[in-house]
């Protein structure tokens, strides 16, 4: 990973954090906004795994297990946030 790529990933993580904070930090937060914040968190978790933990260059089984955690747990938590 180049320093430039690393810096971009960091910037995206910071930007997405600020977006989720801005959409779900009002006095009255809807279930939809809360669910979006959870979905964005799993997007960031996937990015941390793929880039920082270097799963993009890891064996398929490891990237698959990690990806399954992000997708399955993320989907369950988003659904639970909505209901």
């Amino acid at each position: 990973m180049t320093a430039r790529r690393l810096a971009w990933v960091w910037l995206v993580l910071v930007a997405v954090t600020l977006v989720s904070w801005a959409t779900a930090s009002k006095d009255s937060v809807s279930e939809g906004a809360a669910a979006v914040a959870v979905a964005l968190a799993f997007l960031k978790a996937g990015l941390v795994g793929w880039e920082f933990m270097d799963l993009r260059r890891a064996p398929a089984w490891l990237a698959g297990v990690f990806g399954a955690w992000v997708v399955v747990v993320g989907a369950v938590l988003v659904v639970l946030s909505l209901s």
Binding site: T17, S20, W21, A24, S25, D27, S28, V29, S30, E31, A33, A34, A37, V38, L40, A41, F42, K44, A45, V48, G49, F52, L77, S81
Partner: peptide, 16 residues
Amino acid sequence: DLLWLVIFPLVYLGAS
């Protein structure tokens, strides 16, 4: 880091 990324919206940004 990753676990905190999930804890943050669950604990701080839930529906209110």
